[in-house]
Simulated scan of single mutants.
Amino acid sequence: MKKDIGTWLKDVLGIALGGLIFAFGLNYFIIANHLAEGGLTGVALTLHYLFGWPVGTTYLLMNVPLFVIGWRVLGTEFALKTVLGTAVASIGVDLTRAFQSPMPGDLLLASLYGGSAIGLGLGVIFLFGGSTGGGDIIARLVNHRWGWPMGRVLFLVDVVVITSVGFIFGRSVAMYTLVAVFVASRIIDFVQEGAYSARAAMIISEKSTEIAQRVLEELERGATVFSARGVYTDAEKNVLYCVVSRSELVRLKTLVYELDPRAFMIVNEVHEVLGEGFRNWHSS
């Protein structure tokens, strides 16, 4: 029971921290420089610029009907964490208005810094299982109802909002907003997947046993051998599969070439590896 409470408390604190980072980035860089955002955040910002409505309160109120639908369709746990993330972010935006600091003449830097801060905040929220509502709820509901990919739905929502921003405030604001949204998406991926990036290699060779032994001894990595049949030769062959860190890839290619210059090797980028020798499951 203590473990459950501890995990819950860690998630709450993580979501709260992410919400505050998001709020600070939105105020300090985006709102201060009259830029916009995608999703419902962009709608709230547009209403703020046009009518002076408080961004946080407006965003929170727009999410209320989505909370109700999301709770009924997607479950209680998701709804609770979404309410927490949205509430912290919304209240934080209104409370940190004093931190607005315009960057005269340099909207590119404002969009880059703003996108980075917002992406960091959202990434932390997502990392702890939370959500800030808005387009995220819409995407989940559409995915649940019609099976559309969430990424595509989020993209469509952003396109509609940013296009509207372009018509209302001009193409320049829309373009810098696109920069901020793009940077934020990359930072979100970075936070969720981590800076660590591994490589997965599939090696087809007549000397797969020798290669596996060298990988085990020199790289101290495990490997898995699959039996396969070549279509062209109709011959039985072994396929060696192993995962190494990015820095170990050159050593892997070198030892494969030394043992079998005719080996066929495929290398793929792996964004996350959990287990012995890589990232601990408890830190994911």
Rank of each mutant, 00 (worst) to 15 (best):
R221W: 04
L13A: 10
L255Q: 04
F190V: 11
A36Q: 09
T132C: 05
Y59Q: 13
L40S: 15
T46C: 12
L274W: 10
L112Q: 05
E276N: 09
G25Y: 13
L141S: 06
E248Q: 08
S164H: 04
Y232C: 03
F67K: 05
R229S: 12
L255D: 02
L26N: 01
T7G: 15
N268S: 13
D136T: 09
V270S: 13
A201D: 06
L80P: 00
V55C: 09
S284I: 13
I21Q: 08
K10S: 15
G115M: 03
M103P: 00
K2L: 14
G70C: 01
F182S: 07
H48M: 07
V231M: 14
G92Y: 04
I30T: 10
L95R: 08
E258P: 00
R246V: 01
R199N: 08
G38W: 10
E210A: 14
G92V: 01
W8K: 08
F264W: 02
T58Q: 07
S111K: 05
T57Y: 14
L216C: 05
I15P: 01
V88L: 10
R251I: 00
A263L: 09
L274C: 06
G38K: 08
G39N: 03
S131F: 07
M175H: 06
V173I: 13
I203R: 01
V83F: 15
G119A: 02
K253V: 04
L50K: 12
L216K: 13
F190W: 14
V270L: 08
L141H: 03
I138P: 03
L45H: 09
A263Y: 11
N280W: 01
I137P: 06
R214M: 12
Q192K: 11
M103L: 15
G39A: 02
V124Q: 08
D94A: 02
R186D: 10
I162Y: 12
I204L: 14
S131R: 07
G121E: 08
V173K: 09
K253M: 10
G230E: 09
Y232L: 11
A139W: 06
F182E: 04
L259E: 08
S227E: 15
W71Q: 07
G123L: 06
F155S: 11
Y257C: 01
I211G: 03
L20F: 13
A79I: 03
N27D: 06
R246K: 09
V273M: 05
E206L: 11
I31N: 11
R145T: 14
D260R: 04
A44P: 02
V183D: 04
L95E: 10
V191G: 01
V88K: 09
G42P: 09
K207Y: 14
D260E: 03
T177S: 05
L95M: 14
I168N: 05
Y196W: 02
W71H: 11
L84Q: 12
V142F: 11
F78P: 08
G129W: 13
L156K: 00
V142H: 11
T254E: 15
G19Q: 11
E193M: 12
I204K: 08
G130Y: 10
P65W: 06
V142Q: 13
V267G: 05
S116H: 00
G115H: 02
A212K: 12
I5E: 09
G147C: 04
L13Q: 03
P149I: 01
V157C: 15
A89I: 00
C242D: 08
G151Y: 03
I125V: 15
E217Q: 14
